[in-house]
Amino acid sequence: MLIYVNDKEINLNENLTITQLIDSLNLNIESTAAAVNKEIVPKAKYAEFILKDKDRLDLVTIAPGG
């Protein structure tokens, strides 16, 4: 299936969870927050949240700012 991660197209296997995706991208889950199709997903749900074809996933963290 095709999903968009931070607007970038990524081809993934079916039935992948947010936790699995974060792991596959080598990101630190402790400092990552996620929204799917602009809806915030609580961190406690990452392990059970299954991504669907054409989902738009935003993965955020802290960045420099004033």
């Binding site: 931070n6 607007d7 630190n28 955020v60 963290t61 802290i62 700012g65």
Partner: peptide
Amino acid sequence: ITVAIRRIDFEQKENML
């Protein structure tokens, strides 16, 4: 200290935290 909330930059190798 203030920080922004932004999409993860997959090219950024250093972790600000």
